[in-house]
């Protein structure tokens, strides 16, 4: 089929406005998936209709929102509770706390004869709050597991610490440490202070054995990372060093661009 002719016919636009039959629509979707030119025209048509629709926008009354969302979430929980019959083993302390708060607030409100809308409003807000707290809890659990793993690495008697410090021509406060585990040969990196690399460069870690550098890969730092970074394995090393290399790393280190270097703090 001639793609130009296909695009010129207007069938893509007819699809966008919903004027194609089910079979014709499926055919067009296949064409769009196979030909980027068709997909592009389709996206343009859809964008135009989005703009057209926005032109008709009318704000719904603000008080509808809670009612509508509540109805949506209620249907949802009705559905999932039917599927999820197995009792949960654990009750999140947050859930319990929030539930107690909810029950207490319901009790008080009943005596105060507040309107049903008010309860619905509160329920919705509490529902949203519960899901926020569940997310928070998930994050805390993940962070806890991470810290636990870090501590395990540090406490392992087979772990040797290489404190890499700023080399002669660099800021002497620069610091990045390597933890190398002699039994499983794993290498963990803990970046403490390194300047942000320029956008076209990457830091690369090297292990040194018999004076020969072994590539341990490039790494990227984010200020929020407060964890050890597992960077790979090396059977043996006398020292570790970090150099700044072109993006993606180099085959051998540029010694002019070495930032930190370190030998083991104590023998195993």
């Amino acid at each position: 089929m001639d793609i130009k002719e296909y695009i010129g016919s207007g069938i893509i636009e007819a699809y966008a406005v919903g004027a194609l039959s089910e079979a014709e629509s499926q055919e067009l979707e296949k064409m769009a998936a196979a030909h980027p030119e068709i997909k592009e025209v389709l996206e343009k048509a859809q964008k135009t209709l989005e703009d057209l629709s926005r032109a008709y926008a009318i704000n719904p009354k603000p008080e509808w929102k809670n009612k509508i969302l509540k109805a949506a979430f209620d249907k949802d929980s009705a559905k999932t509770s039917r599927i999820n019959k197995a009792p949960k083993k654990y009750f999140s302390p947050w859930l319990v706390a929030v539930s107690i708060a909810l029950i207490a607030s319901l009790g008080i409100n009943v005596t105060q004869h507040q309107s049903v809308e008010r309860y619905e409003d509160k329920l919705l807000k509490l529902n949203l709050r519960i899901s926020e707290l569940e997310q928070d809890q998930q994050i805390m659990v993940t962070n806890y597991q991470l810290l636990e793993k870090n501590l395990e690495i540090l406490r392992d008697p087979n772990t040797a610490i290489f404190a890499m410090k700023g080399v002669t021509n660099r800021d002497s406060n620069l610091r990045a440490d390597v933890y190398w585990n002699a039994s499983n040969q794993k290498v963990y990196l803990d970046v403490k202070k390194l300047p942000a690399p320029p956008p076209d460069k990457d830091y690369q870690l090297w292990a040194l054995k018999d004076g020969q550098p072994i590539d341990m890969g490039v790494f990227r730092m984010l200020t929020e990372a407060n964890t050890l970074l597992e960077v790979g394995e090396v059977p043996e090393a006398e020292a570790f060093a970090v150099t700044l290399e072109p993006k993606g790393g180099s085959v051998s280190p540029n010694l002019e661009e070495m930032y930190v270097y370190g030998t083991p703090l104590r023998a195993l």
Binding site: T142, L146, L189, V218, F219, M221, T227, L229, E230
Partner: peptide
């Protein structure tokens, strides 16, 4: 090898 911290939920 490339290590990225992005995935950490902080």
């Amino acid at each position: 090898m490339f290590c990225n911290y992005d995935a950490l939920p902080v």
